[in-house]
Structures are given as C-alpha cells and as structure tokens.
Design a protein around this nucleic acid. Structure first.
Lengths: 170, 170
DNA sequence: TGGCAATGTCAACAACGCTGACATAAAATG
DNA sequence: CATTTTATGTCAGCGTTGTTGACATTGCCA
C-alpha cells in the first residue's frame, strides 16, 4: 500500500504499474495453481463419495497420528459441526479410528485404519506426483522461493501451526 | 513417482524421506497459504452478502473488460448455471453490466460498472496488500521461484489461459 | 431453412461452510 | 464434594457454490 497511496497513481507510474501487474499475476497464479493442486485428489474422492474436507481430515490425521479432535479443529480452521460431519462418515466407513484418551478420557485420539492409510497413500501419491513434477521442472531455487512466499502469505497463527507440523515431520 | 516406486521404501531411505517430507511441506504450505490468500477478501465479501465466486467473477471481468460469458466460463472452469447465478446478482446489484455484442449479437460482453470497480478495488487492495507484504519479505528471487512453481503446478490448459491473461496484462 | 452456438433459466441435489442449542462425560477448581 | 469448565457429539436449519438435466430464445451460418 505504500507504493500506491490511495488516490495517487501519478507517482512512479511505470514502476507502479509493473508492481501492480506483478501482484495481479501472483493472485491469478494462486488461483490457477490451487485448481491444479486439488484436481487430482478430487477425482479420486468423487469416486468414493468424499470431498475435499475428507481429504484434509485424512491428511492431517495421517500427519499427526493420534491427534485430538480439538487439535484437528484448530489446524483445519472449521467448526466442530463441520468437522464432525466429515469425521463421522470416515469413522463409519472404517477409515478412521477414534480412541478414548488414556490421560484425559474426554479426548478422542484419531488414527487412520489400514483402509484409511490406503486411501491416504492414494491421495497423496497423485498430489505429490504433481508437486514433484512442478518442483523438478522449476528447480531447487524456485522451490525454496515458492515456500518462502507461501509461508509469508499465511496468517501468523497458521504459519506457527505450519511450522510446528514441519518440525514434527518425522 | 520414480523416486519412490510404489511399495519400495528401502532404496535411498534418507534421501527419499527428505523428498517426501519436502513434498508434504509443499502441500501443506499450499493449504495454509491459500487460506490466508482468501481471508482478507472474504471478510469484505461477507459484509456485502457475496462469496468467493462473486470475487472471482469481478476479478476476471475487471481483468478482461468486455469479456464474453463463454470466455469467463472457460477461465473460471465452472458450469454456466453456476456462473449465471453469480452474474445475475452482480448485474441486479448494478456492479456488472452486460451488453449485447455488436459483431455477434448472441454474445454478452461484461463490464464492471463504477460501483463494480469500487468493490473490485477494495477487494484487490487487501489481497494485493498481503501479496505485496509476502513478496517484499521474501525477496525478488523467491517471488520468481514462487511463480515458476505455481505455473508448473497448473494444468496445461489453465497455464495457457494464465499466460494469455498475463500477456494481455496492460 | 435447418442446424449449431451463445446465453439464460428452472429444478433438484450434494458438499461443506456457518450459527445456535443442547447433552454427556470427565477434568479441574474452589 | 459441589460447581464449573472442557472435550466432544449431535440436531436443526441456513447459505454459497458446485453439479446434472432439461428446455427456451436468439442469432449466426451454411
């Protein structure tokens, strides 16, 4: 906003213009790339009668074995009613197991069953394949830049969660 | 997929492991960053009773003044019924104008009205502000890498549309 | 003139966000 | 021990936005 004070488009027109165009490109790149990013898993999910919300739950349960419902709620940033609808079907379908906590019996710890792990593998295979191809063709420097910018784009709270996950990353 | 043939996790365990972890981080970065990316406009949209679909329509109509409905359909990748629902409200609310084509009278050319431009500006201001901050803190090299990876992640058809838009970019 | 293209619209449905209200069990606290 | 708070689940209802299928209108084109 400091480059283009509201109402001022005179100062440094050309530079300004380029900057705005660059930002617009970034915005559109996010839109089109996110579409590609989700398209492969989406195809698999539809066959099973699931949606993206199921994928996200499966992903983070896989990522953090035995996480609690509350923890998952924070990561996903949805309401418990919304998450519960998804979790219920996953548990009914035998993809996720919910175990009562030992230390705190109010908590439910979530785990992928074998069937759940199979689907998780299937979903992350196609998503990782696309990411791998993109990373390869872009090169290591670009990959670093990619992650740096994405991290900077997150809300601070989300960035913290992202980094915490990365640390726990086996 | 060539790094980790299905069922084989023995070969080059450590290197393999790092790669998988890197991909996972990339996937999670996309998830958390996209959340941040949409959060600021979302806040504004809710106040007006609009959603993300309205934002997307407004964005691309702004980007390509006088674009046709069909063109917009291709860019957005949704059904005409879905787009029409959004367009109808925008036209009713006086944010978008639909003019019958001169060359081909079947076509409708779409334009933002002044009110539409005001909202567009408001939405892109906050979204660009976040993008600008992210770009600044990441640095020019990271920005280039960011866009390279995102472009590589798009479906070829979408990449073509993205690049075509970028060319037309004033 | 007949066929195809561009658009709009009606209806129904599904996924997945949301709010609000309420219930239960268990932990925590005074 | 009584009370409050926490973690979870559930019911009901609503809104946005995607889908499919069907059908109508208008206009271009061969």
């Amino acid at each position: 906003m400091t480059d283009r004070p509201s109402g001022d488009t005179k100062r440094g027109e050309t530079l300004l213009y380029l900057t705005d165009e660059q930002l617009r490109k970034g915005i559109e790149a996010m839109f089109f790339a996110y579409k590609g990013f989700t398209s492969d898993p989406d195809r698999i999910l539809v066959e099973r009668g699931y949606g993206r919300a199921h994928h996200r739950a499966i992903h983070f349960i896989h990522r953090s074995h035995g996480t609690t419902v509350n923890n998952l709620l924070e990561i996903l940033g949805v309401t418990k009613q919304s998450l519960n609808r998804v979790l219920r079907t996953l548990i009914e379908d035998g993809l996720v197991e919910s175990r009562v906590g030992t230390r705190d019996k109010r908590e439910r710890h979530l785990y992928l069953t074998e069937a759940g792990q199979v689907l998780e593998r299937e979903l992350s295979d196609v998503q990782q394949a696309r990411m791998r191809d993109a990373f390869r063709s872009a090169g290591p420097g670009a990959v670093a830049g990619f992650r740096t910018v994405l991290e900077a784009m997150m809300d601070p709270e989300m960035r913290r969660r992202y980094q915490r996950l990365a640390e726990n990353g086996q």
